[in-house]
Simulated assay, not measured.
Amino acid sequence: MYRREQPVPTQACPAALYNNLCVLSLPAPRLTQFALVHGLNVQLLSATSDGLPVSQRQLHAKEGAGLSFPLITQAYWCVLPFRVLLVLTSQRGIQALFARGIAASGHYIFVGTWSGRVLVFDVPAKGPNIVLSEELDEHRVPITDIAAEPAQGQDCVADVVTADDSGLLCVWKSGPEFKLLTRISGFGSPCPSVRLWQGTVAAGYGDGQIRVFEASSGALHVQINAHARGVSALDLAPEAGKLLSGAEDSFVHIWKLSRNPDSGCIEVEHCHAECVTDTQVCGARFCDPRGSSFAVTGYDLPEILRYSCV
């Protein structure tokens, strides 16, 4: 069970975008960094474990050397082995007209585009010399989300999944040469949010469904009638196997994923439901890898809601 804690006030309300909340936990000073998009700006907030705000600032994304500010489409903390970067995408994107979907794995950062291409950037340990190392050209419609997890050096283990507006999922093995492992066809609705955990893909769809697949084969393990309206955010707590889902129906749910030792199939248990009354949820993230706390944003809601285990 979770209870509502002191919310973190924001200077502006989040935009009605999918996955419009990013969380970076800093254990040493016991601070949590939040990032959310509002039009031309990205709000960065720091708060203590009690929800007390420490600092707030706003970032703008300029169009090259010009003075105009494009609309931001997503903000995401990319945690690499040697550095942490905040990556922003916009309507004038990175080498694209519109960019959306960000993930990091190893020394790579992945960015999705309106054309369906996924740009793979190689990030050095130091300095700004980030180079475009590869383009993954499997999707034909705009990318909606990207998820990644460390492959831990195992061969033929999926560590990246990309999703698009048709609902198509592509599962990849990263490395010096990226390999497409499988394509998972859409189900007639877009897939706004996707997550990857221990060889399992969890995908949230515009019809309110959550589907859990085997990453390597694309086999469907579980289909959940999770929400009455479209799923707007998914997150996974890797140490506990908890799945967090938020949707336009004002509900946030927490599910427990586990693999049956006999059959090898993924089983899902519903753990918690929270109604954010009269609010269109647009972002939901765990605040720690154990899933003991989570945060929620909503359209036209001037605060970040916080919940923690009782």
Rank of each mutant, 00 (worst) to 15 (best):
R100M: 13
F98R: 11
I184K: 00
S189D: 14
V171W: 13
V79S: 14
S217C: 07
V276E: 10
L234F: 05
C170R: 02
K242C: 10
A158S: 12
A237L: 11
Q33T: 02
P124I: 07
L88A: 02
W77T: 06
F110T: 08
S245M: 03
I143A: 10
H227K: 09
Q154S: 10
Y76M: 08
L71P: 01
L244G: 06
S68H: 12
V160C: 11
L86T: 01
P142V: 06
N41I: 08
R117G: 08
C170L: 06
H270A: 15
E177I: 13
S115L: 03
A65F: 12
G66W: 02
S245N: 05
W172C: 05
R92Y: 08
P29G: 00
P238N: 09
P176A: 12
H60N: 14
G167T: 05
R140Y: 14
L36R: 03
G199H: 12
L97H: 13
G246N: 01
V87N: 01
Q95H: 11
Q74H: 11
V222W: 00
S55K: 00
L97R: 12
Y76V: 04
S105M: 14
S90V: 04
S133A: 15
L244A: 04
G204E: 05
L136W: 01
S263M: 00
R229P: 01
V120A: 07
L36D: 03
C191S: 08
G101A: 04
L181V: 05
Q6S: 11
N19A: 04
V141K: 12
L85R: 03
P238L: 10
V268K: 03
G39K: 12
E269W: 06
I184V: 13
Y2H: 05
A215I: 00
D278W: 06
Q74M: 09
C309F: 10
G298Y: 03
H139F: 07
G64D: 01
F187L: 08
F178Y: 14
A12S: 14
A28N: 07
K126N: 11
G112T: 03
T113M: 04
A202E: 02
A148K: 01
V8G: 05
E134A: 15
R259H: 07
V23K: 05
R183G: 02
A233R: 03
Q91H: 10
V296F: 00
S25L: 05
T297D: 02
H253Y: 09
Q280K: 14
R4I: 04
E303T: 11
T297G: 02
P176D: 14
V281C: 07
L88G: 03
W172L: 01
H221P: 05
G175P: 09
R3V: 15
A148C: 09
G264Y: 11
L31P: 03
L45H: 04
S258P: 01
A61C: 14
P128R: 00
R140F: 13
L168C: 08
E239C: 11
C275P: 00
V212E: 10
R92K: 14
S292V: 00
I184F: 02
Q95I: 10
